[in-house]
Design a protein around this nucleic acid. Structure first.
Lengths: 228, 228
DNA sequence: ACGGATCTCCCTCGAAAGGGGGAGGCACGC
DNA sequence: GCGTGCCTCCCCCTTTCGAGGGAGATCCGT
């Protein structure tokens, strides 16, 4: 698998390429919707002796397209991006190469995001408050085929295991709830009766351990189940 | 005022200082709680010929302290930071030098944040999705004593003008509401009766143009009036 | 001294929301 | 084929909300 990746990489060398002479650089692709962050990350990664940024993507679609062309060793992927969410982009990439080394690099420490990111196939999940040194360590680890988790992230993930998982329907209802809709409006939106909505809400409240819809919204926001 | 700033800057040259020979560099201080972002920003700013990052702060307190020591020409300030919020840090700095050039650089485009940042005395408000070129332009503008607003930010600000402003009490109640508290609980928290809470809620609903507490929470979250 | 804004508290009343139960249908896995 | 989980809908009942009024107190700027 490694041999194959190297071979494909050889003819795909295009894009930003600051140090061509040096042998065996870790080829990094950056996907982040903030140009400032992309350029900043690229700058500090390129300062490292063993890594080189070969491409930058500003949204999920671009990330997948660039990954196909460049076949980077490591992809740094933000989650919240236009056009295609990071999680979806990861799925598409992993569908083509299950061994692809992808690092989620984001500000969100919601357990839901972490879980979704890793489930999609990311090898590592880093919060943007990491020290640069830790990022470099992570890049090298993923390049070597290893997984990498920050303690904080691992703790969040473990915590999620102990939490009740909501059904698809419950999440739908929770989202509509968070938009401020009434039970009746939720029912109309989902083509079910108000009774059914209440029924779902009941189990929802039990699972989230709350007693009011307002509490439910607050908790859902904290966990990243709904986005504003 | 400019002359004074230059004079003070002369003896304060310490910290990170990559290009000392070149004359009249714009001396930039970065305050952001993400080391990765700090280093990234510093890297690309230092690539510019006329600017140089002289210091990096990881929280609000550090930002104020470093600003005192370094007296930079321009300060890039994130809003959400540990220990001391960006807005507070801006206030403290402006209290010492009303002419201080401060640029808010953040991901939040909530009108409330924008308003608070500029009211505190920032000369510019940039969203992190700006192109690096625009950031450089902004730094130069602020260094020249000018204000700088992105069209998107200006639009948000204009929009806010047409919105009803909430009273202090109403904001307090809105925050407790967003935590999922009942009217009674809110009353107990604020040492007022439930009737009074309802009374405030009435005007709150009218101002926000909503009909339920859930809607109010959703809207407040969108506007940045409450943080999760 | 005045209006205006804000905060405080009170009333009623109908409409939602929440708590307690039960129950049928349906798909999925063991 | 039988349980299990999920979705659907129903009942009753109590509590809370939200809408409609009104009203006194304070502070502040003019």
């Amino acid at each position: 698998m490694l041999a194959r990746k190297q071979a494909e990489a050889a003819d795909a060398r295009r894009e930003t390429e600051p140090a061509p002479g040096t042998p065996r650089l870790i080829r990094v692709l950056i996907a982040d919707d903030h140009p400032l962050v992309r350029r900043g990350l690229a700058a500090i990664i390129n300062m490292e002796e063993d890594a080189s940024v070969v491409g930058e993507a500003g949204d999920g679609e671009e990330a997948v397209a660039l990954w196909r062309r460049l076949r980077p060793d490591v992809t740094l992927m933000d989650l919240r991006m236009p056009k295609l969410e990071g999680v979806q982009a990861i799925r598409q990439i992993r569908a083509e190469d299950p061994g692809a080394g992808i690092i989620v690099l984001t500000t969100f420490d919601h357990d839901e995001d972490i879980y979704a990111g890793l489930r999609a196939g990311a090898k590592a999940y880093l919060l943007k408050d990491v020290q640069p040194e830790e990022l470099f360590r992570c890049i090298r680890a993923v390049h070597a085929g290893e997984a990498y988790l920050q303690p904080r992230v691992a703790a969040k993930l473990a915590q999620r295991m102990h939490e009740e998982t909501l059904t698809e329907r419950e999440v739908q209802i929770l989202r509509l709830l968070a938009e401020g809709k009434s039970n009746r409006a939720i029912g109309q939106a989902l083509f079910i009766t108000e009774s059914t909505v209440k029924s779902h809400l009941k189990s929802l409240f039990v699972k989230l351990d709350v007693t009011s819809r307002a509490e439910a919204i607050a908790l859902a926001a904290k966990r990243g189940l709904v986005k504003f």
